[in-house]
Amino acid sequence: MSGTDRPQHPADLPDRLAEVFDLVGPLYRRAHRKVEQDAPIEGLPVGVRAVLVLLREHGPMTVPQMGRAQALSRQFVQRMINDAAARGLVESVPNPAHKRSALIRLTEEGTAAITAVLARERAVLSQAGDGLTDADLTACIRVLTHLLHFLDNVDVD
C-alpha cells in the first residue's frame, strides 16, 4: 500500500481511540465483578478463571508462557495456578522441552468447571447483543485487536 492508498483517519482519531480505552476499562472491571459474583457455583476467582480459559484454548502451558500470553507477572500467574491446583482444577506434568518448567494442564474437574462458567457467561451474553450486528462485532474485534497489537509493539520512553 502506498502512502496515498492508506485509509484516511479523522482528525480526532486520538480522541476517538481514547473513548475506546475509556470504555474498555470499566467494561473489563464490570465483567470481572459479574464473573466473581456469579462464579460461586464453581468458586472461581477471576485470575483462576483466566488461567483455566487459557489452558482450555491452548492446551498445557508453562507458567512463564501463561504470563507472557496474558501480559501478567510470572508470580501472579503462579499464585493463580497454586489456587487452581489446590482446588484440583489443574495439575503439573513433566515438560519434555524444559526439565525445570513443568507444563500445567487442566484436570477433568478443571475442564468441567471452566466449561460451566463459560456456558453461563454465553447465556448472559446472548441477551447483551440486542441491536448489534455481525458487522458491529467484527469492527469492534478488529479495532481492539489492532490496539492490542499496537500496545504490544510500541516503545514508550
Rank of each mutant, 00 (worst) to 15 (best):
V24I: 14
L54I: 06
G67E: 01
D134T: 14
R33P: 02
I141H: 13
N95E: 01
G129K: 00
L89K: 00
V46N: 05
I41L: 09
D155L: 12
D152R: 14
A102D: 08
F76V: 12
E42T: 10
V90A: 01
H149L: 11
A86F: 00
E36D: 11
S2Y: 04
H9P: 03
D15N: 03
V90Y: 01
V46C: 06
V77K: 06
M61H: 06
G59T: 08
F150D: 07
A139K: 13
E109D: 12
G88S: 06
D152T: 04
R122C: 05
D83A: 14
R33L: 11
A69F: 00
V24F: 08
D134A: 15
P96E: 09
T133G: 02
D155Y: 07
R68L: 13
E42C: 02
V143M: 11
V46K: 02
A139Q: 13
D130S: 14
Q78W: 04
A69N: 03
P14E: 00
S126D: 15
G110H: 03
E57T: 12
S73N: 02
L27D: 06
H58P: 01
P7Y: 10
N153M: 06
L72D: 02
R16W: 06
A31W: 05
V20A: 09
H9S: 13
H146L: 12
Q70N: 10
V154C: 02
G59A: 10
A116E: 02
R105T: 11
R74N: 12
L52Y: 01
G25R: 12
Q75S: 08
V51H: 00
H146E: 04
S2G: 13
V124G: 00
V35N: 02
Q70P: 01
H98W: 10
R105H: 01
E109H: 14
G129M: 08
V117Q: 00
Q78M: 08
A102L: 04
H58F: 11
T133M: 04
V156W: 06
A119V: 04
R29L: 15
L147E: 04
T133D: 05
S2N: 13
E109F: 02
L137F: 10
I104F: 02
V117L: 14
P96W: 05
S73A: 09
V93S: 09
A123M: 10
V53L: 07
A11H: 11
E42H: 08
G67S: 02
T145S: 12
A84N: 06
E109S: 14
D136I: 03
V51L: 09
A11K: 07
A116V: 07
E36V: 10
K34H: 15
R16F: 08
D152C: 06
L118N: 05
T62P: 04
E121I: 14
S101V: 07
R49P: 01
R120Q: 11
L132C: 01
D38E: 15
G43E: 07
L151S: 10
R74A: 07
T115A: 15
V48M: 00
L147K: 00
K99T: 13
E19F: 09
V117Y: 05
L147F: 05
E19D: 12
R105L: 06
P96K: 05
D83C: 09
